[in-house]
Nucleic acid binder design. Structure first.
Lengths: 203, 203
DNA sequence: CTGCAAGTTTGCACCAAGTGCAATGTTGCG
DNA sequence: CGCAACATTGCACTTGGTGCAAACTTGCAG
């Protein structure tokens, strides 16, 4: 799921990627068309041109395939900058940058990914839960970032709280973008989202 | 799941409640002892003294039973007060009261419930997904509260953002309580949790 | 107390998700 | 070509979960 479109590491690997993409594509199309429960793994496998058994060689569960969720990794350069107290030095501003980086990592190479995933999640609340759980799995990655940063530029509070704020920020921006007709870039909504949150806790 | 220990509405109903409690208890004990995947519904049913089929008359899924997550309902009196702009009139203070009400509704009659659920989620990340699903299911209930309140005492921002803040507050308080050795009442940690969140967004 | 109606439990048959295993194909490479 | 590594597949099996209808419990009216 990282942004390396041209990994020339063998023909075999490329085929594998193509298959995975085909599965995700088939899964998403079918689920959007007929609803999650009405689509069986068998149907997805058939649409992707593989056997049902092979489906599970690629994804651990139907949910994973539908959300197309591999693992994500934050850009190493950005990570270094953030833990060193950057990029701007003001925590709130850096929070926004971090949230943007997260959104980028989620989207992967496909700019349409957030739209499709949002649509899916609206149609199938079940998947929202899965999506959050996936976030939770990567929570440590974000929390570590804050812990390291704390050493050189002390945080106003503990890393766990900072992490939660970042995730809320991501979610709020996504909601905002969705409410605004999904125009333009999700990250543009980050400042407004942060302002809204601040308005509540400072009321 | 509401806090009415002595609902004298029929003997039949009492029996039903007792069974449900027995199922949750059996499920939690077994899962904490052997791990989620090693415990079958059949085993839980047997431990609770019912047939496997009856298990599904009480809970929609194994996950629901393990988390003991029925539906919750906020106290009607409190709801009325909150939408009327109460109880204190200061939004942040009222947010804390709302969060406390949520924690109460979740815990139900058993004060140990939050501890067990936290422990379960730490041991079985799988359950996180379900926990979030539950959150999402009840999000509307809380959001409606804010929408109604807005009519008589305008909010600084939209109901959706307020709702997210409340849930983060709940979560943060729970974390805090957990970090402090799970002493005393979770709700005591709410003010500190709110302060921490404010510290981040105001940095 | 009797008997009926409504609600509950349970067994049974069934579908779908997911796993382990072993056979069968494919692919890359010396 | 031929072999070793890897990928696909079929098959049998476990488990979660549902629909249905029969049996049983319980509350209540007469």
């Amino acid at each position: 799921m990282n942004a390396n479109p041209v990994d020339d590491i063998g023909l075999r690997a490329r085929k594998k990627r193509a298959r995975a993409d085909a599965i995700v594509d088939a899964a998403q199309r079918l689920v959007l068309a007929h609803g999650f429960d009405a689509v069986t793994v068998e149907a997805i496998a058939e649409a992707a041109g593989i056997s049902p058994r092979t489906f599970f060689n690629y994804f651990e569960s139907k949910d994973d395939a539908v959300l197309g969720q591999g693992s994500f990794d934050l850009d190493a350069g950005f990570r270094g900058e953030f833990v060193a107290g950057g990029p701007t030095g003001r925590l709130t501003a850096d929070l926004e940058v971090l949230a943007a980086a997260l959104l980028g990592a989620v989207a992967g190479s496909d700019p349409h990914a957030p739209a499709r995933v949002l649509e899916l999640m609206q149609a199938e609340p079940r998947l929202l839960a899965h999506h959050f759980a996936w976030f939770e799995r990567h929570k440590n990655q974000v929390e570590d970032l804050f812990t390291e940063r704390h050493a050189c530029r002390p945080l106003p509070t503990d890393p766990a709280t900072c992490t939660m704020v970042v995730f809320v920020l991501v979610r709020a921006a996504l909601d905002d973008w969705d409410a605004g007709g999904r125009q333009g870039d999700v990250t543009e909504h980050l400042p407004a989202a942060l302002a809204k949150i601040a308005a509540v806790v400072n009321a």
